[in-house]
Design a protein around this nucleic acid. Structure first.
Lengths: 144, 144
DNA sequence: GGACAACTCGACCCTAACGTCAGCGTAGGT
DNA sequence: ACCTACGCTGACGTTAGGGTCGAGTTGTCC
């Protein structure tokens, strides 16, 4: 039986506890806690008893993190990138500051594309391996 | 200055020491030793002084292992699969034995294809992430 | 037959990104 | 008050190696 914490707080500021969050984004509790430890994601608050509380933004953030994972970013890298994104999200930035941040973001884009291309290479390596396996499996008789 | 161990032994039975092997397949010495510890690959022998010696088959094997890595097999899984392949390579197998082995190989093929498809999914997740990054980077002004 | 550089050995500790377990406290419904 | 599901911290385990150490081994050159 699921608890509906969502309805407990009115006024559009829904909060979720870690189990809900984990289920929604498909990560383990441990992983969510570890991401906090790694500085990737802080809970918006805690209950009196110490339960972590998250909001919808946290869920977004976790989904984003999940998307980065296949690219092989380390948590450290993700932390940097997310921080950068956060800084860019501020609405009152001097133009030059914003430009500087955006240039740093460009570096990340390049890095991500690099990683993407190595990921693609891995797919083709994997394909050739699976092809080879098929050969091994289909060759019923002898090699000669 | 590279030692050319290859020419030291005549009669087509070339042996290489670990450094040569590692360089040829693009793995570290540590990794090659670790693979041995994990039961993936035994040296064909040792020198009097205890240096590991490998032959061309070993190199093949390592290259194969490298091809499996992108599919996310654990070393344990690779060990099983390689062992199975070794068993199938025996020339004097009863037909039913061979059939049994080949069926097990079929399971591996399925597993590999599964892993390949999740790898492909990862590529598309990664692509969408990189696309999102581009959006963030290109959006120079404000969100509204 | 000694010097020497390059190579290798086993042993050890270290890391990232979690999994898993234990022991204990909390949230909220009845 | 009680129950049960949920969560907390802390600690150790795991995988696939990386790094480093001091000590031993090879091949080569004199």
């Amino acid at each position: 039986m699921r608890r509906n914490v969502s309805r407990s707080d009115a006024a559009r500021g829904d909060v979720y506890q870690i189990g809900d969050v984990a289920e929604r984004v498909g990560l383990s509790l441990r992983t969510v806690r570890y991401y906090e430890e790694a500085g990737l994601l802080m809970p918006v608050g805690r209950t009196v008893g110490g339960f972590r509380l998250y909001d919808a933004d946290a869920i977004e953030r976790l989904l984003l993190i999940r998307k980065m994972k296949p690219l092989g970013f380390t948590l450290e890298e993700m932390r940097s990138l997310l921080t950068l994104r956060d800084e860019l999200a501020a609405p009152d930035l001097a133009a030059d500051t914003r430009a500087a941040l955006q240039e740093r973001l460009g570096t990340w884009v390049l890095l991500a594309e690099e990683k993407l291309s190595t990921l693609r290479e891995q797919v083709s390596v994997a394909e050739s391996f699976v092809g080879g396996l098929h050969d091994d499996a289909d060759r019923r008789g002898g090699t000669a």
